[in-house]
Simulated scan of single mutants.
Amino acid sequence: MAEIFDGAAIAAPVGHAPDSARFREAMSRVAASVHIVTTDGPAGLGGITATSMASISADPPMLLFCINKVSASAGRMIENGVFCINTLTPEHRELADVFAGRGDHTLEQRFARGDWRRLSTGAPVLNAAVASFDCRLVEAKEVGTHIVMIGLVEAVAYGPAAHSLAYVHRGYRTL
């Protein structure tokens, strides 16, 4: 199979995938919504910034997101068995950076910023999010460097229609 780089096809040996640097570069060119995924429960508060979220089913309502398996929040989400995916607006750029680990904030200190509440599962819900999906974890599957977390949506919250925060070309954009 050939790869395309700046308009030119670059052949990869049959049966070989592109190296991770080339894969990451290609993925940096794919726009994605920015989310803060949170958890709380017996294992404590946790939260990350994520762009890898997708709906799976409308009936029953199910979502998935991916988290690096070395993330301190990964184990907490699995042990707590709940998570909330909060889709961000452009006004949440700084909060996205905090939850992405930029700065010296502990998992608990990340929640000092933003206005949070709880819905069904007890996972923190960002009040000003475009949409929030409060989920009960139904499966966690390790795939490569990440864990795919699948959740059954127990509650949703959303406000008036607003622009979404996106990430593409290694920077934030507004959609």
Score class of each variant (00 low, 15 high):
residue 6 D to V: 05
residue 11 A to E: 15
residue 12 A to D: 13
residue 12 A to I: 00
residue 16 H to G: 00
residue 19 D to T: 11
residue 19 D to K: 02
residue 20 S to K: 11
residue 21 A to H: 14
residue 22 R to W: 02
residue 29 R to Q: 10
residue 30 V to A: 02
residue 31 A to K: 01
residue 31 A to R: 09
residue 32 A to N: 03
residue 36 I to Y: 05
residue 41 G to E: 04
residue 47 G to A: 07
residue 49 T to W: 04
residue 50 A to R: 05
residue 52 S to W: 05
residue 54 A to K: 00
residue 56 I to W: 13
residue 58 A to W: 08
residue 66 C to G: 11
residue 79 E to M: 05
residue 82 V to W: 00
residue 85 I to P: 03
residue 86 N to E: 12
residue 91 E to V: 08
residue 96 A to Q: 01
residue 98 V to P: 06
residue 99 F to N: 05
residue 102 R to A: 12
residue 102 R to C: 11
residue 107 L to D: 12
residue 111 F to Q: 08
residue 113 R to D: 11
residue 115 D to G: 03
residue 117 R to T: 14
residue 122 G to Q: 07
residue 122 G to C: 04
residue 122 G to A: 07
residue 126 L to F: 04
residue 132 S to Y: 08
residue 132 S to Q: 03
residue 138 V to P: 10
residue 140 A to M: 03
residue 140 A to W: 02
residue 144 G to D: 10
residue 145 T to H: 08
residue 148 V to G: 10
residue 149 M to N: 04
residue 152 L to M: 11
residue 154 E to C: 07
residue 154 E to T: 01
residue 155 A to R: 04
residue 157 A to V: 05
residue 157 A to G: 14
residue 158 Y to N: 15
residue 160 P to E: 15
residue 161 A to M: 13
residue 170 R to V: 02
residue 170 R to G: 08
residue 175 L to C: 07
